[in-house]
């Protein structure tokens, strides 16, 4: 029993499951509050489901010592796709949607060019971070110009954008300079440190999503209060 590859993996790299823990928590929170989620949050929920699937596969491959690096790249596509969906719902102006489409186009071209089955596509992931920052900034700009949100501190999408921008800023350089940071997989290389940083920021992003799902519930209740 104890020498089952899964158990071995957990025993050997317990801290690598941190993001997965918060991912599962975020999914549960999303489910609990599912009725209160708006369209944008639905997209994030979809993103979490996809990420969970990919992560399961990743851990399976890791346990059986199979290559799983390409799954990082697939996860990146899933993330950027769903985030574009979420921001597409929120940012309704023509200009903003054009920017979203262009960003997605740029990302996909980079992805096609940079994709690899055997290594982390650092440039692609870096571009994903840049695009996340662009999306968040677009949303901040939208908030400041439209002034429709009454209390920004309990506004879910604001925190999602804030989480996205911090997550992206924290991991951008790690992926842009992937050869230096994650290139050396040997045990005395820097891979372990940097992947841990990436995991921490990913976990942070999931925590923000958990908070935002609860906030959706509150926002929904308050909107109900006002209209009644």
């Amino acid at each position: 029993m104890v020498d089952h590859p899964y158990i071995q993996l957990v025993l050997k790299y317990p801290h690598s499951f941190l993001p997965d823990l918060f991912l599962v928590l975020a999914l549960v929170t999303g489910l609990v509050n599912y009725l209160f989620l708006d369209k944008a949050s639905h997209w994030l929920f979809r993103m979490l489901i996809l990420s969970l699937g990919i992560s399961l596969l990743q851990n399976h491959n890791a346990a059986y010592r199979l290559n799983n690096l390409y799954l990082y790249n697939l996860n990146s596509v899933a993330e950027i796709g769903c985030l574009t969906g979420a921001y597409w719902v929120e940012l309704k102006s023509k200009r903003n949607r054009t920017i979203l489409l262009i960003s997605l186009g740029v990302y996909l071209s980079v992805f096609l060019y940079d994709f690899s089955w055997t290594k982390i596509a650092g440039i692609t992931l870096g571009v994903q971070r840049i695009i996340m920052i662009v999306y968040a900034l677009l949303y901040f700009h939208y908030i400041l110009t439209k002034m429709q949100v009454q209390n920004i501190l309990i506004h879910a999408m604001f925190w999602i954008s804030a989480g996205a921008i911090v997550h992206a800023a924290g991991t951008l350089f790690v992926f842009l300079f992937v050869k230096v940071t994650l290139g050396d997989v040997s045990s005395n290389g820097s891979y372990g440190l940097y992947i841990q940083i990436v995991r921490a920021f990913t976990a942070f992003f999931y925590v923000v999503l958990i908070i935002s799902f609860w906030l959706r519930r509150r926002e929904f209740r308050m909107a109900e209060h006002i209209t009644v």
Partner: peptide, 23 residues
């Protein structure tokens, strides 16, 4: 990374503060 993070946090704080002020 540190610089980017500081900038990101600065932007977030600014947006929250400015928006509340406007409201």
């Amino acid at each position: 990374t540190a610089v980017l993070l500081v900038m990101a946090i600065f932007i977030i704080v600014f947006v929250a503060y400015y928006q509340q002020k406007q409201i």
